[in-house]
């Protein structure tokens, strides 16, 4: 592919993009509320301490949750019991507690995890970079059963991975296991027949776009709610699919990124060998 753009424009464009991200990150660090500015009682719900919400609600209603003479952590905040599929406009409407902490309260940690995975995948690809060797002659005929079966099973596995990371705020799961499930489906396609090559440009585009989407969602939160990776969408009714604000958007981005990265790792491990894998 020929590229006629002069080098100066390319460098200026790259500098421009980097400068925008640097300014955004600097603004994030400057304008984020300091440790003493946050009311911690508003950030952590009392019911999230217990795992079994139903029992905790019953105990709190009957007044047996705390011992005599012991003051609850958020005694001055009025307490309302949370009911599934009825209560609306919570501070974070995710039915899955782990997801709401990982993506919403500690969203910056998740950004760091995604960066770590990206660095690991790029390290593997840099180590195994080389000329692709095609097998000279076919030693054995590939198995038709494996070929057809893996192609059919790939659709089901792909759908299951998408289900895992779209329903991350309702059921256990999330972006990382969904991406890993999708990557194992692609591994099955590799084992199905010789010389399978995924669409490399598609993998690159998916990975870059989803990584950029994560940061852009965080920047939208920064410019609208004054905090990086803050929830800027309405939280809705707890338990519905369209609830919990931006958690499902971020998990879709993470799932696409992890799936394409792990698929690229598998491709770079399998692709440039002379052997047959079917």
């Amino acid at each position: 592919m020929k590229n006629d753009t002069p080098k100066v424009f390319k460098s200026i464009f790259a500098l421009f993009v980097v400068a925008i991200f640097m300014i955004g990150l600097f603004y994030a660090f400057v304008s984020m509320p300091k440790g003493w500015g946050v009311n911690v009682n508003n950030r952590v719900s009392r019911l999230y301490i217990l795992k079994n919400v139903r029992t905790a609600t019953r105990l709190l209603d009957s007044g047996k949750f705390f011992a005599k003479g012991m003051k609850p952590l958020r005694a001055e905040v009025p307490y309302k019991p949370i009911k599934f599929k009825k209560t609306a406009n919570l501070e974070d409407g995710a039915a899955n507690v782990v997801t709401s902490i990982v993506v919403d309260y500690r969203g910056f940690d998740t950004l760091g995890e995604v960066t770590v995975l990206f660095l690991a995948a790029s390290g593997v690809m840099m180590l195994l970079f080389g000329k692709r060797v095609k097998p000279k002659r076919k030693k054995t005929e590939p198995s038709l059963i494996m070929y057809v079966g893996t192609r059919i099973a790939f659709a089901v596995i792909f759908l299951f991975g998408i289900y895992i990371f779209v329903h991350g705020h309702l059921t256990p799961g999330g972006g990382f296991p969904g991406g890993a499930v999708i990557a194992s489906g692609i591994l099955g396609l590799f084992l199905g027949r010789n010389g399978y090559t995924p669409n490399h440009a598609g993998l690159k585009v998916f990975e870059s776009l989803s990584g950029i989407a994560f940061v852009i969602i965080g920047l939208i939160g920064l410019f609208s709610v004054k905090s990086f990776l803050a929830n800027f969408l309405p939280t809705g009714i707890i338990g519905n699919l369209y609830s919990a604000g931006f958690i499902s958007l971020i998990y879709i981005a993470i799932g696409m990124k992890v799936g394409s990265e792990l698929a690229a790792v598998v491709d770079s491990m399998i692709g440039d060998t002379k052997e047959e894998w079917s």
């Binding site: 198995s143 494996m146 059919i152 089901v156 084992l191």
Partner: peptide
């Protein structure tokens, strides 16, 4: 039913 025979065949 779909995956078990395939894995056994493999």
């Amino acid at each position: 039913l779909m995956t078990n025979p395939i894995s056994s065949h493999a």
